[in-house]
Write a protein that binds this DNA or RNA. Structure first.
Length: 106
DNA sequence: CTGGTGACCGCTT
DNA sequence: AAAGCGGCCACCA
């Protein structure tokens, strides 16, 4: 049994994001073990070995905005995908008021 | 083998 | 109050 590396854990968490919701790097990083792993989370999605299994487009920074580095494929592709799921965008930012993946308290 | 970087966040001065 | 820096993991030269 091989223990899951930090990357595997990150992929697992991102894969657990429900439909119509988004999560932040810090949120995932904290669930992965340390919130400082946020940077690693970004890198993990950067390599994104399995985009079909890892919906990286459901991951946004704490501002609710997508990364301005590569924009996931040349443009706001990510935003359109989220809109297709029913997520509302405001000035290119996600309405974190009720779409941020909050671990169901109950 | 060593150094540096990266789709980030939070703390410190 | 604002600005700068560190930290963690993995990969590249």
């Amino acid at each position: 049994m091989k223990e899951k590396n930090t990357f595997e854990v990150i992929y697992d968490i991102v894969c657990q994001i429900p439909y119509g919701q988004v999560a932040t790097y810090g949120q995932i990083a904290q669930l992965a073990g340390n919130k400082r792993l946020a940077r690693v989370v970004g890198y993990a999605l950067h390599v994104n070995p399995d985009p079909q299994r890892i919906p990286c487009y459901r991951v946004v920074n704490r501002f609710g905005e997508v990364s301005d580095a590569f924009a996931f494929g040349g443009g706001n592709r990510q935003i359109e995908l989220l809109e297709a799921e029913g997520v509302r965008f405001c000035d290119g930012k996600v309405d974190m008021d009720g779409y941020q993946w909050k671990k169901q308290r109950f």
